[in-house]
């Protein structure tokens, strides 16, 4: 049995408000999943059942949405979720090499959490910042016009070791 999941009181209130904000209750699923991720760092499977109960929607519908979109973390991430763009323009400007070097520097495999729990480095598709390639997204923030040293420096400033 997986352990039960619950949002904070404020989080649950927010989800309930989202339920009436749009024309259909289903539209609140994405905001609700965002809230889970905000509070928990990722979306644990047991939260799906919780949300189904809270929102009065079928579990299958919530799980379909959860599994379809890439921004919901399916596994825990480090405190800094570093997503290096490796789509075409970034790849042409060293995005893949940057991701690889960052993995080496922080001693993690792609998608893995570093031993100190601070860093996860993954490769992502185009983030719409191709003129500043290579670039990465750290949590919600875009960090652009990178080279390896600049990327490491930025991550250190954000608390990486």
């Amino acid at each position: 049995m997986s352990k039960a999941f619950e949002l904070s009181k404020e989080g649950a209130e927010l989800v309930k408000k989202e339920l009436t904000r749009y024309e259909t209750k289903h539209s609140a699923i994405i905001p609700a999943l965002y809230q889970v991720q905000k509070e928990n760092g990722w979306v644990p499977p047991e939260s799906i059942e919780y949300l189904a109960g809270l929102m009065g929607l079928p579990e299958s519908h919530i799980n379909e949405v959860f599994s379809f979109y890439t921004m919901f973390n399916k596994v825990p991430t480090g405190k800094l979720h570093v997503q290096v763009c490796t789509n075409i323009s970034c790849s042409m400007n060293g995005g893949r090499e940057l991701a690889k070097k960052l993995c080496e520097r922080f001693n993690v495999k792609p998608g893995e959490v570093s031993k100190d729990g601070l860093v996860t480095i993954s490769q992502v598709e185009c983030l719409g910042s191709c003129d500043t390639a290579p670039m990465m997204q750290v949590n919600d923030r875009y960090i652009e016009n990178l080279d390896f040293e600049k990327a490491v420096q930025a991550l250190k400033e954000m608390g990486a070791q």
Partner: peptide, 28 residues
């Protein structure tokens, strides 16, 4: 079928692209 006929919604298609799979949520 589970959506329209029985309206029980046990089944869904999870994930996307060629990784998509039908199934129930958490083995229910």
């Amino acid at each position: 079928f589970t959506e329209e006929v029985t309206e029980t919604n046990e089944l869904g298609i999870f994930n996307r692209g060629d990784r998509a799979e039908i199934g129930t949520v958490q083995g229910r």
